[in-house]
Amino acid sequence: MKKIKSFPLLLGISLFVVLIVSVLIKLEILNEYVAQILSFAGINVIIALSLNLISGFTGQLALGHAGFMAIGAYAAAISVMQFNMPIFVGILIGGVVTSLFGLIIGFPTLRLRGDYLAIVTLAFGEIIRVILVNLDKLTGGAAGLKGIPYFVSAAAIESDPAVITWVPVLNFACITLTMLLILALSHNLLTSSYGRAIISVREDEVASGSMGVGSFQYKMIAFCLSAFIAGVGGGLYAFLFNYLNPTDFNFLRSVDFLIIVVFGGMGSLTGTLVAGYLLTYLQEALRFLQDYRLVIYPVLLIIMMIFRPGGIMGSKELSIVRLVRTGSLKKALQRETAADREEQA
């Protein structure tokens, strides 16, 4: 059988899909509303991936990812609006600032074993929200932060008004490509020795210590990385909606991400990807039920927990490479690591 390289194949498929959807948006076959949902789903996937990294793979429950997202969003928006940074740099600054907060929270908390992180991050998320309301000089306070630019600069729109029609396309492309990059890097990390060390901490902290893995160090790495990714997601959110309000980042938002992770499968990257798009779509599709939406959603979760307690994917990964190679969906559902090993052998 002819060997198919996984990297070019996946890159090709991803770029192809992004391109096709972008063209559909530009031709307005997919309207602006759908484009917005697709972009928003991408952000949800990014932050759910970051949560999965710390909760699914490292086994440390975190309940404050809306707080991280908020820091990233405000840091990115403020650095672009006040300090005239390019948008790309602003998003990176959002990620770095957020990971610094991760460092500050993680340092005292992750030394302990058990669910202390959940409590501390829960409180942290709320504290951040209150601080954002009260720092009104910088953040606009409870009225929110207005006038955040699009992914294209204001100058470009001024010089050619036609640029504005590209905004939905740009939103979708920037967010989805970032999401795919984060997905790919997360997968690489988790199949490397550093990733195995992180997973071993989840599996058994005492044993991994005795095998030479410093659990505190790897919990810190995973937590700071998680904060960084959530910050980047927050930055993208700011430029997608062009308006930030502290109430967007409340505890329920954190729970939304947790639901995506649990629904997709703790410890499955592709599960998070599938669940992120599915649940974001579902939230919109159930809009006609109005308040009953909040009933349907938990019922769905309960059904899920009864019939598939591990989530859609459990801890397995969906592998497109395997799907192409064998043409069988069942084999494609094998652990991706097995496919990787085949590659190296």
Partner: peptide, 13 residues
């Protein structure tokens, strides 16, 4: 053991 990891991964850790 790291129960949810493969035999090989257990050794690789």
């Amino acid at each position: 053991l790291f129960k949810e990891m493969t035999v090989l991964e257990n050794v690789l850790i």
